Structure formats: C-alpha cells, structure tokens
Computed example of a mutant assay.
Amino acid sequence: MALRRHIACVLILSLLVCGLPAGALALEKYGRPLPSMDDPNDLDRGSEESLFAGYLLTGAFAKNPSFAARPDNSGLVGLRHMLHLETDLYKQYLTFYTDQNFFSDRTNGWIELSEWDGTYAFTGVVDHFAWRLQYERDAPLDRSGIKQAYADGLITAKLQSAQDMAWWRSLFPNQSLTMYGGAGWLFHNSNYFARPDNTGRALFRYVAHADLDLYKNKVVLYGDVNFFTDREGSNQARPTEMDWIVGLALRWHDMELAVYHEQDQPLDKPGLVQKYLAVQMRFSFDVSKQDLGLGKQPLREIIP
C-alpha cells in the first residue's frame, strides 16, 4: 500500500510539475491521452469482451498560433476529425485498435483536409499493467511532402483510486482518480522527429496521464505529458521534447464536450513551440459480445 501511494504521488507531481507551467504537448502520439469514457467505479465492465467499440470526434482549433497542419510544419490546423475503433481479440489481454486522424488547414479555407494520421496497434491489460505495439504513419493529403512513420512498444502501469488508493478515497470520497505512466521504444523510425521543429529522430518516450472525476463522471479534468528523446543525440535517454495537454470534459450519456490546451516544445535547445486551444465533441459507442448474446453469460441464481 505504501508503494502504491508513493507511485501515485510521483505521477501526480510529474503531471503538475512537468506538465503545466512551462508548456508542451503533442497530438495523441501514443494512443489515447483522451480521458476514458468508462465509469472509473465500474470495475466489472473491463472483464467483458468488446465486439467493437470506439468513438467519433470532431473539433475546432479555436486559437492556433503555431500548430502545423501537415508533417512538414506548413499551414495551421483548423479542424480535426477522428475515428477510433477497437475490438477485443481475447478479453482484455489482447485488443486491436486503430485511430484515423484528419486535419484541415485554416490558411486554406478550413474545410479541405490537409493531413491524415493513421495508427494501428495491438494492446492488452494484465492487472495494473498494459502493453502496446503500434504503427503510425502521418502524411499530407492535399500536396506531396514529408511522411512520418514509426513502430514502437510501450509499457505502462495504472492506478485507480477505486481499487488502489484507500487514502485518496478517504480524503476525496466523491472524486475518483485514474493515472498511468510508462516508457516506450520507437524500434522503427522513418522521419519521426525528436523536436517540434522537425529535427532529430525520436528513440524513447516517457508518458504520464491522469483523469480526475470532479462530478459523477460527468465533469472530468485530465492531463497528459509525453517526452521524446533523440537517437541522434549525445545522450539518447535525455528528453529533447516535452508535450503536454490539459483539458476539461463535460459528459452527457455517450457524448462529451471538451475544451483543452495542447503545446509541444523542445527541451534541449531553443526552437519552434507548437500550441493551440481547441473545442471538440466526442461520441462513444461500445457493443460487447455479451450485449449480443455471443459471449459467456453470467451465472444467475435460479429462483423457484
């Protein structure tokens, strides 16, 4: 218990100290920094197998002084549209998911799409730990230009106040907290850069994420921090880029309205800082095998 409490404190401090003051965040570079739509107190749902689940997302970058609309750092993002799909291949131990992200350029009429980021991954959860193998390719849509692609592995550890933090429940009985942190290795890298100004090549990543349920899973504050290192640098383990995001999500049934700020910045030298403020709508869906009568049904007591 003392160890879990220590880990929780370290993760909270990492998000608050590293993530919030100076600035830096990237656009979902490792899966799902968006807050989970699941109720953190629903501990049984995770054991069900999803036939298919995911969400549709659309958003507008209300303020964008520098977040680029293409991998070559040209243009400025205006709109973002995303489809996330996943299916459980074997319970929660093996899941396949894909994220398809599309962006438009506000300097080119807002509507025409300028970039397509496609992600394909296998992931799984074992107790408090999760693993992931992912391939991502980012490419321009409206012109020729730089394409970025990588494959990586990531391992994270997760803590939930409902299961792991009695001290949190005693202090904040109505506010649940979910956190995870971990590290990954980009074992294949084709032009996936180590800084926002498109210099270097990323090698390792360090991540931390937290969701704080402020009111009955209807108001959620979330934060995310993502560090990259440079395989071409003198110290390949030292972060060269820090990306952070902080947002507030309001929910009603399967819909979510969120306002969030994202910023990417170099750590080892002066350079380009990319940032924006966005408003987005998200609609989630989840159809389990049990919902369609395809999986094992829970045993029920027979009442004469």
Results as ranks from 00 to 15, higher is better:
T98I: 04
N101M: 14
P65G: 12
T98G: 14
H84V: 11
Y93V: 00
F102G: 00
V77T: 04
K63Q: 09
F67G: 01
D72N: 06
K91C: 06
K63R: 10
L79Q: 14
E86D: 11
M82R: 09
T95D: 02
H81K: 08
T98F: 05
G78F: 12
Q92L: 02
L89E: 09
R80Q: 14
Y90E: 12
D72S: 06
R80W: 11
P65S: 13
F102D: 01
R70H: 12
L94R: 10
S74N: 09
D88G: 14
G75V: 03
S74C: 06
G75N: 12
K63N: 09
V77D: 05
F67K: 07
F102I: 07
R80D: 02
Y97I: 01
A69Q: 06
M82D: 05
H81V: 09
R80Y: 00
G78P: 13
D99Q: 11
R70A: 15
A68M: 03
T98Q: 14
T95Q: 15
L89W: 02
D72I: 00
N73C: 08
K91N: 07
R70G: 12
F103P: 02
H81Q: 14
H81T: 13
L89I: 03
T95E: 13
G78I: 05
E86K: 10
L85G: 05
E86I: 05
P65D: 15
G78T: 11
P71Q: 01
S74A: 11
N64K: 01
A69K: 03
F96Y: 15
T87S: 08
T87D: 06
H81N: 10
P71V: 03
L76K: 10
H81L: 09
L79N: 14
A69W: 07
D72P: 08
F96D: 02
F67T: 01
A68G: 06
R80M: 02
N73F: 13
H81Y: 13
K91R: 14
R80C: 00
N73Y: 04
E86C: 08
E86W: 10
D72K: 04
R70M: 13
N101E: 14
A69E: 11
Y90T: 04
Y90V: 07
F67Y: 15
D99C: 01
A69Y: 11
